[in-house]
Amino acid sequence: MRTHDFYEPRVSVVHQSDARVKVILTLAFILAINLLPPGTWANYLLFLSLIFSAEILSRLGIGYHLKRSLLALPFVLAALPLLFTLPSPYHSIPIFGVNLQISQPGLERFLSIAVRSWISIQAAILLAASTRFPDLMIALRMLKIPPIFVAIISLMWRYLFVIIEEATRLERARSSRSGAAPYGSARPGGRVWWRAKVTGGMVGNLFLRSLERSDRIYAAMLSRGYNGNPPTATIAPLNRQETLTIVLGLLTFLFLLFTGLTLGV
């Protein structure tokens, strides 16, 4: 029932850095690595070592990030067609008795995408795990992201947990009524089609309830003076050290990107 946050409290340099520094560096990191051409393995490796170092510095450890980054796996499947659609040379590989024709540049492209998304997602995980959500939102506002986008992100976050909570309760109520007959040989469970119908009903119920609940929450927000702009706390501008961290970070990413673009394949 761990629902409430991705934030993992630790005492570390990464956790204590200003959220703005982390947001800028994370976005720049992800942008830089994804602008690298396919097949520049040495540069990927350098980016990987950067993110590993940050993970160790954060005291969350590499293992934590590896486990969470498995989330990225399904998205990699979207790049799978590249294996077959890119030009020759082809290699034929027998899978389940069928000879698949796999393109070599396709394979290289696919692996490049997989590695880059895997590294990118680790950066995002590190940001989310080392920064409190409200700090993240303040950082986005300070970085001049349009307030409407920030409002959408923070409300989405808020309501996501409302919906998870409602769904958990519905699910509990259903399990409570999913029993076996104490006598006779009837097998419990019901038919698949019937179960699908019940689940459909639950989804409809969840939608109606979430809608009503969100209306109530919104009314409560309005009655407390919400006008679309979250209250702006005054936050000190970045100090010299923080600015320096950002500049150094950006220079490093630029250097890695530049070498990848010029020296790469």
Binding site: L170, A173, G179, A181, A186, R187, G189, G201, G204, N205
Partner: peptide, 30 residues
């Protein structure tokens, strides 16, 4: 038999009949 505080948690079918029938149907009764 657990009766939850909020009946909305417990009622998820399009009709009252189907809701009351959920338990017995799940049990696989005729």
């Amino acid at each position: 038999g657990l009766v939850f505080q909020n009946p909305d948690d417990q009622l998820f079918s399009p009709t009252v009949y189907e809701d009351v029938a959920y338990g017995p149907v799940y049990m696989g009764l005729p």
